[in-house]
């Protein structure tokens, strides 16, 4: 006998997979191999690669990053291999300054500890390092996000008469989003993920609008960018609502509006992100395949 409700479970499944930011990135890559032509010979990439490359670029100028597993980890490791070689990667398993040669499947992979500057206990990483406000950037994934970049990774409302669909839960996210200097988010763009109203607020982004973070006593600036496979959203300085500021090459604005569950605001001028470079793609693919492109 299998779990009932196979059809309706799929929605939760996918949401859960997004929340846990599956290391099945490779499967997704093959499935959605929509190559984009930039004019230069044979440079092609997948939407996921586009997302990860742009997420890595968002770390430019950062010194320390508290890294969620999955898409955030791919982006942070790519940044360390390209624009930010000195970026200090911090994982909630207690590693400060991990330098893995390939993408870890879990936050507990041995290589994260073996290559770290220091390994500390879990209470120490959360109390002395995160809560104390020592970390510049928190990099998170999400199952559901709303217009104020609040996050749900706890439960999905499956409608009347149905039990709640279970997501993995909070993990480190509430305090990462509270205490890091700023927060970057990376997730795939769909109406299921970008919702009008969260079923549960696990992690506060900008709450219900301007001033909420200060009122709640949240130390950091909160989410400054949400990078998706379609483009980049940033909070409006006046309203704290996410606004579409950039689209990726080959993506249209109506496509992003269609994939968003609320009436998305569009910046007066929408930029187009730079296509991934050969170097970025080579570094990302090497990380995923376990090789090291550096000498």
């Amino acid at each position: 006998m299998t779990v009932n409700n196979t059809a309706t479970d799929t929605a939760t499944d996918t949401a859960t997979d997004t929340a846990t930011d599956t290391a099945t990135d490779t499967a997704t890559d093959t499935a959605t191999d929509t190559a984009t032509d930039t004019g230069s010979p044979a440079v092609t990439w997948t939407p996921d690669e586009l997302m990860t490359v742009n997420a890595a670029r968002a770390l430019s100028g950062s010194r320390t990053c508290f890294v969620g597993i999955g898409l955030p980890s791919a982006a942070a490791n790519l940044a360390r291999r390209t624009s930010e070689p000195d970026l200090v990667l911090i994982y909630e398993s207690g590693t400060l300054g991990s330098k893995p040669s390939r993408l870890p499947l879990s936050i507990g992979d041995g290589e994260l500890a073996a290559t770290a500057d220091a390994v500390v206990s879990v209470p120490e990483i959360f109390n002395y390092w995160l809560q104390a406000g020592r970390i510049d950037v928190g990099f998170l994934g999400a199952a559901q996000v709303d217009r104020f970049a609040n996050i749900n990774t706890t439960v999905i409302d499956r409608g009347p008469g149905r039990s709640e669909g279970r997501l993995p839960g909070a993990g480190g996210a509430p305090e990462i989003a509270a205490s890091c200097g700023k927060v970057l988010m990376v997730l795939r763009h769909s109406r299921r993920n970008f919702v009008e109203k969260l079923d549960f607020v696990t992690t506060v982004g900008h709450g219900s609008g301007p001033g909420d973070r200060a009122r709640l006593g949240l130390l950091g600036e909160g989410p400054v960018a949400v990078i998706t496979d379609l483009g980049v959203l940033r909070p409006d300085p006046e309203t704290a609502q996410l606004v579409l500021t950039e689209i990726h090459p080959g993506v249209t604005v109506p496509q992003v509006i269609e994939a968003t569950g609320w009436k998305l605001r569009i910046a007066d001028t929408v930029g187009v992100t730079e296509p991934p470079t050969q170097a970025e793609l080579a570094a990302l693919r090497a990380l995923k395949s376990g090789g090291d492109t550096r000498a």
Binding site: T12, D13, A23, L105, S106, P168, E175
Partner: peptide
């Protein structure tokens, strides 16, 4: 970690199989 759902955990919470599971849920910190 890195893979997806815990299906037995979800089945217990969502469907009470093989028995209901009470939760006390926190953040890591």
């Amino acid at each position: 970690p890195g893979v997806g759902s815990l299906h037995r955990f979800r089945d217990a919470v969502e469907n009470g199989w093989p028995r209901p599971l009470e939760l006390d849920e926190h953040s890591h910190a």
